[in-house]
Every structure is written in structure tokens, then in C-alpha cells.
Design a protein around this nucleic acid. Sequence first.
DNA 1: GGCAGGATAGAGAGCGCTCTCCAGTGTCGG
DNA 2: CCGACACTGGAGAGCGCTCTCTATCCTGCC
Lengths: 356, 356
Amino acid sequence: MCYKDPVNVATPPSGSTPTLEDVARAAGVSRATVSRVINGIRNVDPAIQEVVRQAVAATGYVPNQAARSLVTRRAGVVALVVSGASGEEPGEPSPGQVFTDPFFGRVAAGIIGFLRPQGIHPILMFADDAETRTQVLTYLRQGNADGALLVSTHAEDPLPRLLADAGLPAVLFARPAEPIPISYVDVEHRAGARLAADHLVSRGCRRVATITGPPSLPAAQARLAGFRDAMAVHGHPYIPCAEGNFTYHSGEAAMERLLAGHPDLDGVFAANDVMAQAALFVLRHRGLRVPEDVAVIGFDDSSVAAASRPALTTVRHPVEDMAAEMARLLLAQVDRPELPATSIIFDPALVVRESA
Amino acid sequence: MCYKDPVNVATPPSGSTPTLEDVARAAGVSRATVSRVINGIRNVDPAIQEVVRQAVAATGYVPNQAARSLVTRRAGVVALVVSGASGEEPGEPSPGQVFTDPFFGRVAAGIIGFLRPQGIHPILMFADDAETRTQVLTYLRQGNADGALLVSTHAEDPLPRLLADAGLPAVLFARPAEPIPISYVDVEHRAGARLAADHLVSRGCRRVATITGPPSLPAAQARLAGFRDAMAVHGHPYIPCAEGNFTYHSGEAAMERLLAGHPDLDGVFAANDVMAQAALFVLRHRGLRVPEDVAVIGFDDSSVAAASRPALTTVRHPVEDMAAEMARLLLAQVDRPELPATSIIFDPALVVRESA
DNA sequence: GGCAGGATAGAGAGCGCTCTCCAGTGTCGG
DNA sequence: CCGACACTGGAGAGCGCTCTCTATCCTGCC
């Protein structure tokens, strides 16, 4: 057999983008062989592989993903869905604001860090009402994306159930409020809160209070419960608490309320760093020193924790690792849809800085 | 002609997802007709349209995007690329940190707000070294995305040039450092800085300083130049300045330096809100009252501006509108690649709050 | 030396859709 | 009453790729 010189025959028929056929012609082999080389499959003579590779380079060939997807039934894309509840609540974060939360950035970074090496990229979608939820579902069904990575901002989010019912591959960032056969990753919130409680007690704090997240969120519930239980074990059965919703403003207000009711407190556990930061601000504003007068512990170890003054002691929430794990779980599920829903729970750790 | 009852013949051959063919069979028409109805095209009898629609509903048909893309040569996806320089510089924000910047959230929100109604979604990509830049290029060439929306964090970012050279549709968020035939949107930075200068002067500030962005960024240059020029016009030819890089930390450090060199200053213009917020913190820490002792003006009107204490007076940067315009420009360019590169410049506005 | 059997390459059938022809139908003017 | 013409709907050719099936070649063994 005689293979033609790949370089001289390379130019595709027209000025349009070259196809497999063009490369095959240039290399003097069949389409199938080129396909095999490109997809790195067995049974191709090394010499021919080399000829094909040269032909690919010479023609500037790039495989057409649509054609590939059509036959493989794989989009090579996953949806990263930021999903809220029905959107009726006032004060609910708008889609854009979600990004402002350092938490979301960490999730995105973790997901992308895992997916990028595999040539898979996330499509960004928001779902905050019935219409946009339908859009997500349709999008997945159309095969635009192979599955969904879901970050819900609300416990009542109906999207997880819709996805599960539709049998679409999906992984949640946190345990759903009600049991749904769907995979998720989460952190051991109770254990994290216990770490905070133990640390405050070991520092000698006796009058400790907590700023909670929205009670509708299981994560917030668990942090509160874990903190209370641990404090009870240390002999502090009653813990004053003020409810926030994870925003800076709500944290400020909550700290004000706590201080109004308990001016002598000497320790605060906030359910996330942003609220802890707000607490720091209020305390300093009141002339209270942190950690000398009041010790403050946050939760998440987000970027604001180290940036705070004083730097926040906080419970590390391994968000990036968890996000990468989400992606891993999703891809496994896409490959083998028959796999049962799995949940992976991560351990938190205490990061001691200056505030406690 | 007699159309069969769509409901009874509906079930597709197997349990697999229904295709156009299945719907056509169910409706008793040809594939072409169903396609016409679905794509809302002319020349279909209303009665038949109805029959087809019922058949679609009965079969649960959803068009396969890959097949559609294959023939239309349109992915229905655009890439949202966050692009840095070569990544050698230490202290450079990692991909994930980019999200933490409220600025990026606003861009994403603006883009999504415009694209979502059209059923187009952005794919999130980072490009921070040669390899990932190639990945972006390849991705676009493969037809995975129809074009790129580029947010560069560095002036020397080579990606815009690569995109322009490859003839791929792309729109930048800011004017490229060197002239490149590529579309972009930007804000009139000089005019914005002038607004800040005028306001400080009209408040009676006499000893004004500024915290700049990285000098390699044209936007930072323009803000500084605009501020200096305007202050010169007001009779203040010399303006102390300290360089920051748009982060909170750099803003703190810059404010410290300014105060060290000019303890008596009474006005500060920071090139973005985050650094202005840091300035606020340093000033309060030093016991200086804002705005009584020192007036502070930021730039961007990002979410942190209103959340600061005192709330920041700032120059509004219409990021969301600009981002939407980027998307519009990109889609126009995808539709008609022969269109010349266009640039659209937005006007800033002063938002007066408490800090000045 | 002939033949089984593994390794390798090619042929060709789709994947599901769009879109360009064409054929058929009905309408109107001459 | 007939031909011209707008209007509809169908047939069928791909879009570029993967992958199964088959043909060919080569090696080794009896």
C-alpha cells in the first residue's frame, strides 16, 4: 500500500473547515482509521498513526463536537445550576448576587478544577421560578448537557425532585431537605459546630451565643443543633441565638440583637464567615475587643475569613474538594445511569486565627 | 387526506427518546412538516399545526440539539471566558477568586439576563496559561460555542489577539491595551474619575489623594489620568497616589501609605469600591471620621458600596448593561461574521451616599 | 506448504435534524 | 373552462462523526 504525502494533498476542497473525510484523503487512509487515531483507539499501525497525525496538523482539522455528540449521545457539557426557591420571598438574592457570595466562587472553582482537565466545561444556569426550572429540564433532555450540578440557595427548592423524577443525572451540593433519591455531597455540619463550641469553651468563654442561618436550611439547622448539643455537654444548656440569613446585613442585625439581650457575652459562633465578619464590625463599633472581650468563630473558612481584621477563627468547610467530588459523582452517574444515588460527607476542621 | 389520531399512535417504537420521525408518524405527516411546526416556520395549515403539536405533547418529544447543531452549524452556546495573563505573577488571583470579585458577578448576571430569554447559555471557562488558552480556541473551533465573551483580568492577556487572528466571534469587556480588531464595550473611565474629582472639590476637599489600580490596566490608567486632569483644572496639579491592584488588601496597604505620607489629607478617590472599602476601614481604625475628616469616593457602585459603613459614594459603572450589550454584540457577530468590530462606550454616573 | 487465528484497515450504515427541491392542491384572471 | 400562480406538504439529500461488520494481511504452527 502506498500512502500519499500528507502535506501536499492536505488542503481541503474549499475554504471551509476540514472534515474527517478531508484528513482521510490527505493521509491516504479511510475515515475510520483517522477516527481511530484521533480517539486513541487500538489497532492502528504506528506508522499510519504518524501519517494521520501529520495530516491532521496539515489540514488544521478539529473534530466537530455536534457530529460527535449526535452519535455518542454525550454532550461533553454539564450544567452548573444555581437554584433558588420560587422567588417570592423579598430580600432573596438575585441571580447576580449569588456570585458575590464567596461560597459560590469556591464551588465553581472546585468544579472547574476537576472538569477542565477532562475537557468538560460547565454551563451556567439560574433557576429561580417555574419557567426557568422547566428550561433547565428541557435543556438537559435535549442533550445539551449530560447532567446537572445543583447548588440550591433554598431548602424548598423543587428542582432536585424534578431532576430525580425525570431520571436525569444530577448531584446536589447539600443534602436535600426532604429525602430524594439523588446524589449529594455535604459536610458534617454538626461536627463542625462542635469544634467551634469546644474551642470557645476551652478558651474559657462562659456566656456564649450564636448567630444562625435560615432555619429552613438543613445545614443551618445542623450547625445550630451541633453547637447547642456540644455546649450542653459542656454544661451550658441554654444558648441565646439570633437568626440571620448568611448575609452581612443579617449578621449585623443579629449581633445587635444578641448584644441588646446579653451585653455581657464573651463568645459568638456565627453560622458563616460573612455573618461573623459583620459581628466583628458590630463588636468593634461597640468598643468591644475581639478576642479579648468577645471571641468570635465563623464557619466556612471562606476568603473573607483570612481577610477580616482580626482574622477569623473559623470552621473549615472543604468546599472546593466537595465541588470536585460533585463533578466526579456526576460523571460517574452519566457513564452508568444505573448507579444508585450516593452521598459523600466531608469532615470539617477548625482553623484557628485571631478572633478566637 | 386523513390524519391519524395523534394520541393512539403516539408511543414511539421503543422506550428510547422520541425523534422527529416518531412525531411525524404519530401525527400522520412528514418529518419536514413537524420540523416546520417546531421551528415556527411559514406555510403550515393551522389544523395540521395543531395535530402536530398534540403529537409532540403525546410523544413527549424534545428536539435533539446535537443533530440540530450539526446542520445549522450553531451551538446555541457562547463561552464566557475569564482570562488572565500568563499566570507568572505571584499574588495573581486564582480562577476561583475571580468569582469573589463582585464585579464578575455583575458581568455574569448581565450576560445571563440577556441570553437566557433567547435560550442561550454561557459556558464558563478560565484561561490563564498557554494551554488553557489553546483549549478555549479549540473549543470554539470545534463549534462547542458560537463565540466568546471575554473578561480579562490583565492588560497583557494574549487571548484577544488569538481570537481575533482566528477570526472567531468575540467581544471583550474592556478596551484591549493594544489596538486589536475586536469588538468591546467599555465605560468612559476618565469622565467617571472627573465626576469623583468634581464632587470632592465641591465638598471643599483641598488635600486629595487617590488609590489607583494596576498601571498596566488601561482602565486604571484612565481613571487616574481623568482624576488628575480634573483636579488640575480645579487648581490641584499634584495628587498623591498609591498603587493598589483592586483587592481589599492592596487597598488597605495603599491607604496606609497615603496616610503615612500625608496625614492631613481630607479626600480619597479609590479606583474601585473594594479598595475604597478598605480605605474606610483603615481611616476608621486611625480614628478618622468619614466623611467629616476624610471624604471617600469609590468606583463601580458594586454591591459592597451600599453595604459599606458608611455607605460609599461612588461612580456607577453600568456593568450589567455593558455585559448585556456584550452579549448582543456577540450574537450579532455570530449571525453576520462579516460585520466589522464595534465598540460601545457607556457613560458613568456619580452615586452620592454617605462617604463623600 | 497450507491453514487457523490475531491484528489491522475499509465500507457503510446510521445518529436526528434541517432545508432544498418538487409535486400536488386550490384560486383567480382571461 | 383552462392555464398561471401562490400555497402546502413530502421526499430525500446530506451535516460530520462513530462503530460494527467484513475484508485483508501476516504470523505461527502442524
